[in-house]
Nucleic acid binder design. Sequence first.
DNA 1: GCTGAATATCTATCTACATAGATATTTGGT
DNA 2: ACCAAATATCTATGTAGATAGATATTCAGC
Lengths: 194, 194
Amino acid sequence: MSLRYALLALLTAEPLTGYDAAKRFGGSVGHVWHAPDSQIYPELRRMEREGLVEGEQVRWGPNSTKTRYSITEAGIRAFRDWMATPLDYAPVRDAVHMRAAYFEWADPDSARECLRRHIDHYTDQIAQWTAVRDAILDLSNDTIATRVRKYPAEDHERIIAFKAFAYDGLIGRGEAEITWARQGLDLLDKLSSV
Amino acid sequence: MSLRYALLALLTAEPLTGYDAAKRFGGSVGHVWHAPDSQIYPELRRMEREGLVEGEQVRWGPNSTKTRYSITEAGIRAFRDWMATPLDYAPVRDAVHMRAAYFEWADPDSARECLRRHIDHYTDQIAQWTAVRDAILDLSNDTIATRVRKYPAEDHERIIAFKAFAYDGLIGRGEAEITWARQGLDLLDKLSSV
DNA sequence: GCTGAATATCTATCTACATAGATATTTGGT
DNA sequence: ACCAAATATCTATGTAGATAGATATTCAGC
């Protein structure tokens, strides 16, 4: 169901085609909510049926058109309603931590590999998240620049601050993951040195 | 697919009925991998067909039996193989961070509520995780006590250390979430005081 | 002996999501 | 004029998981 709200969130900045939206899910929103295009197109159609968005045919080259969706008043209301609704927490499914709990069944090299990959993964992610956050803060991020242009100047600070805040959360969590994995590597060293 | 390995992990400690396993998914493994019983029973049957576990009928009262599953050699091999296989990282789907990124659409009270619930949720979880970790470390946790009894004394330290390590990871991450949410509350205060 | 909780299992339906295409048009560069 | 890449969309199939039961037996306590 959150895909729907991710789409509405995108559309509060500007009208988009399904293709545009799908691209955003590779970057911006994609950092917090992933979705493949095969989920996006049908969801937009459903949302149109329910009046949350409005599709309009726009020219695309000389012989073709594409559908550009805009958020409707009802869509904005639905988004705000969602914002006021408590989230429920999805049950945990965490393969790395599960595996780590049973590392006595792995040979130490595999265990180390697993943790090193964990560190690499989050190092990588943190680099991306940090880059995006910084680009948001100095408005060199296009998506956010476009968004901000749509709203009065007195809102800009909040808009930017919340986006940066979300990224800070991802970064903080990533750092916790790395710290943990390093502790694991130390633990493996300690246990194998006996 | 990880459900399968969670089950194998459980069965390396002792044979279990589907019902026993389902209960474990409410506690121990459930902290890292959740699954409802409606997934567990069929998965165990599938695993039996594939020779990873072996079901035996054991008496249950005077007029009934139940199926108790034990891990087979093939099951142990499959589990070890999985341990040596790199995990791939599931795409992110994080409703709270997504919502936080668009807090300009929430009224400040709802935003605060959302973050307070986040703090409550993880405070709660951390209390549980900490209790389990401590019970693991002093062997007052039954599941781990049973497990440890099955293996030679020189392995006990590792077995316990890895379980505690996994819980430390959950706790660390939970603390990061709380830190972040508190920052959010501060940010909301700052922005509303303007 | 009765009753309610726990044990043990199975089913059925629905949605979300992953994966892997197919198809057609447009645009930018040689 | 041609070709590759990008744009724009749609479909189909499969699995995982959420949700909500149905059913029968056993066990513990009164």
